[in-house]
Nucleic acid binder design. Structure first.
Lengths: 337, 337
DNA sequence: CGGCTTTGCTAAATGCATTTAGCAAGCAAT
DNA sequence: ATTGCTTGCTAAATGCATTTAGCAAAGCCG
């Protein structure tokens, strides 16, 4: 392999020179349009062989400049530390490559300013599509994409200004609530006291999950302080559940923890208690993590179907006539303990 | 803001037309070379104003084509689910943007074939630099970069074929071991039995950490079965520590868990035991995770300094005369419980 | 043999920004 | 008036791939 290519990267002109034909023909052949343009088999073979020998690689910048598309697929996620987004990104990368696109991912850190900056950077790179996952306000970003003619999809948080793909939060919440009730046991579950902790009022996912929870939680027990929408900070969840415990002198029969972040806070609190305090309580978390799963008091966790979400999002992109306000639901999985 | 830009994106030619000057001048001004090229203040202002009005954005493809550099900074990580890599990526993104580069991250999934594919895709995108973090074999990838004239740095796993930035694993291991000994207590720590579990023999990080561990672990106690390099699969770690426990009828006084993955397996095993079995044992993990930190038996965890690693890597890139085999060490942090 | 089709290929325009060499006008000095 | 410098700007080449319109040669028909 004594390749004397160190000088400069070979272009189609180098191939043309070596094959004694025109650059046009080279381009046609390399793009697989030989038949369409009636290039002879002989010429085609020669071009391909020389390209191989020279280790020719297309200059993506020149191609993108000419075609006004980059072959890049963009995705913005909130962050990578969250396992849901991490899984989403990995599924996105794999699928993008399958589709022949180069994935370009960035985190928006749930900060509108960063999100805008990151989205602008992606548009500058002329990404052909963008998925917005875990963005605080998709509306303006969707508008930007429309103005630039970039196809986009909202993930996780839907918005009417672009097609959206979301987990079926209500269904997942029902599955999780049922799992909690199962753990509590036939006898007690009818009159069990269930608590919902974590998330924000008015927020799409939280509201949906709350609906799923309330559909199964014993009616007569839905008292005001059983639903604590304290956000996603572990410390807030810790304080909130501690307050409940102090007030009632005990934990409820079941706890629906909305998100792994809130779960962190709950665990922090529980581990300060005497184990006998929480072994009678069934916990469920709308999120899955391998470190939380083996905890003895965990009845079940919800794992969102990141592969399904990404596949759906790509199929949305591929369908040209989908209404911007359409929402697709993907069922999550319940992992029972 | 009734912008009639829908048609086509404005180019420097549009600006030139509007300002009644040449595109050359526009380019010079927009690149901040006005002074160097003696463009009058008046002209400069006019160009900038019109560019603003037209919402001009440079076409990165054309620029990249001309300059033969893309303004992209690439990084390959093993995956995103691991918190260390997740943090690394977030630090990388932030720093890249500070440096005026657009971050392009991809995961190699610890699979040489994927790594090669991903690296090739990045090179096709003409990234200006690449960081390799958590790739199985940096050598060939470093060689590719050299052939293409792309600056690269190895992170986490060093290799002589490019400058490397790694956590000071030995130091971190010493800190963690000391922390475990502290927890065990003055009285017992001299003759304490310490165990090292997780990682692979012959692997750089594991060997380094083992050296740090052995430097402090009581000498006379370093028996063969106290060091279990069972890889990174949680199930392997679970089985290994279970076997130890069955064989000796008890846990050791202290356990050095090498990686959060191994820790998962350890936790799985512990939670099956009666708590009295493990409360006398001090656990330390070379990795940090918020769900593991509050566990009562955890004495401390090591958090690698992702920001420091990325900053160091960028400074390596900026220094043209660094030997390819040079290795930079970044101290990690011990999080005590 | 003239006219038509088919085959196989090419010329040239295009996308947009950057940079170098250098022009023209104005002014000062001799 | 001539020479020389400065100021302010521009022409034109360059990077590389793609695509459309169309040319030349060969083959076929009547």
């Amino acid at each position: 392999m004594t390749r004397a290519k160190q000088r400069r990267k070979p272009t189609i002109y180098d191939i043309a020179l070596a094959a004694e034909i025109s650059p046009s023909t080279v381009s046609i052949v390399l793009n697989g349009h030989a038949l369409r343009h009636r290039i002879s088999q002989e010429t085609t073979d020669r071009v391909l062989e020389i390209a191989r020998q020279l280790e020719y690689k297309v200059n993506t910048k020149a191609r993108a400049l000419r075609l006004a598309k980059s072959g890049l697929a963009g995705m913005i996620v909130a962050n990578y530390r969250n396992r849901f987004f991490a899984g989403l990104v990995e599924a996105f990368e794999a699928k993008s490559r399958l589709e022949g696109l180069c994935p370009l991912v960035a985190s928006g850190q749930r900060d509108p300013k960063t999100e805008l900056e990151v989205a602008t950077a992606m548009i500058k790179q002329q990404v052909d599509i963008i998925f917005f996952a875990g963005v605080t306000e998709p509306g303006p970003l969707n508008a930007m994409c429309r103005a630039e003619g970039i196809l986009c999809v909202n993930i996780d948080l839907p918005h009417f200004s672009a097609p959206s793909v979301v987990t079926d939060n209500r269904l997942g919440a029902q599955m999780l609530t049922q799992c909690i009730l199962d753990r509590i046991g036939e006898g007690r579950s009818r009159s069990a006291r269930l608590m919902f902790i974590g998330g924000r009022a008015g927020e799409y996912a939280t509201e949906e999950r709350l609906l799923g929870f309330q559909a199964l939680a014993p009616r007569d027990r839905s008292e005001a302080d059983d639903t604590i929408l304290c956000g996603y900070e572990p410390s807030e969840a810790r304080i909130s559940i501690a307050r409940f415990h102090a007030l009632h002198g005990a934990l409820p029969d079941g706890v629906f923890v909305n998100s792994i972040a809130a779960f962190e806070g709950v665990v922090q609190f529980l581990l300060q208690l005497n184990p006998s305090e929480y072994t009678k309580t069934a916990f469920g978390c709308f999120d899955w993590h391998p470190l939380a799963a083996p905890l003895p008091f965990v009845a079940g966790m919800i794992e969102q179907d990141v592969g399904g979400i990404i596949d759906t999002a790509f199929s949305v992109i591929a369908s040209p006539d989908i209404a911007p306000n359409e929402i697709f639901h993907v069922s999550p999985n319940l992992i029972r303990n």
